[in-house]
Design a protein around this nucleic acid. Sequence first.
DNA 1: ACACACCCTGTAGCCACTTCAGTGTCAAGC
DNA 2: GCTTGACACTGAAGTGGCTACAGGGTGTGT
Lengths: 153, 153
Amino acid sequence: MDTIMRIGELGRAIGVDVETIRYYEKAGLLPNPARSQNGYRAYGSAHLERLAFIRHCRALDISLADVKRLLDFVEHPNAACEGIDLLIDAQLDRVRARLKSMQALEQQLAALRGRCGERHSAGECGILHELVAAAHGEACACHSTQQYDQSTC
Amino acid sequence: MDTIMRIGELGRAIGVDVETIRYYEKAGLLPNPARSQNGYRAYGSAHLERLAFIRHCRALDISLADVKRLLDFVEHPNAACEGIDLLIDAQLDRVRARLKSMQALEQQLAALRGRCGERHSAGECGILHELVAAAHGEACACHSTQQYDQSTC
DNA sequence: ACACACCCTGTAGCCACTTCAGTGTCAAGC
DNA sequence: GCTTGACACTGAAGTGGCTACAGGGTGTGT
């Protein structure tokens, strides 16, 4: 009743490298599949679903450790769910913090890019000058704060 | 004339862990400093500036390999500068791509967060349901595309 | 008989650090 | 003189999330 797939088929079905699947297995995220006589891994629809879940979480940039926790919740649906929203909250906080820093980064790089004129030596390059000056200047917040806490520079 | 600092002072001056400084040295980003009689590293203002430059570039999320290239330009100011703007362009492209995907991510996580009500078991948790359903659904673009190419889900 | 695609295991490499184990140096306090 | 503590040194190993490779076995088509 259950379609049986080999690792390559599973990989193609979800769009995951076979090495990654084996890696998830070793990391304890995918349960050990049955083996056919030749020793090949034999996957069913349960594995397919679980792998899809993992990849969806990874697409949300959730760490494998957290994915493991979420999978525990899926396995034990009667447990209290407190942990779930806390986990998602924390993830959202992380993503928002990074988003903010990436935006600052984009601004800085875009400004930097405008500094370079045409046909000149590295010694006259506005980008390089700007980088050196910014690294030197005390007004720049980059050096005193964490990478992901920086505002403008 | 040149203030001489030990590694701890240099680290505090720039806000970098001493281990990171030694790592940069081993990686060839910081030149080998002089040593005092006891074998301690002795840094001068040139090292300070160079380290500040490196950290500034890293704050801009520029890879160490690219920082190395930029440092080469700083060292050889008479070379042509073509490489510099290309490097910054590529960096900007990378940052913008990540920025876009992070924005999509934030949307998805925020939507997910809204799914969880109060006091219920994991089996009834809207977040978990949503995650499982989204992983299962074919309409979701997450599985077929790269992590950083996803749009909405 | 052979090519070729697929599968297996185990190990090492990637990036940018971080941590650790084990040892040495030096100034201050008792 | 002895201890304590902060700081320095080296080299190796660990982190996360894969990715790549070496060296073999399996299965199908021609």
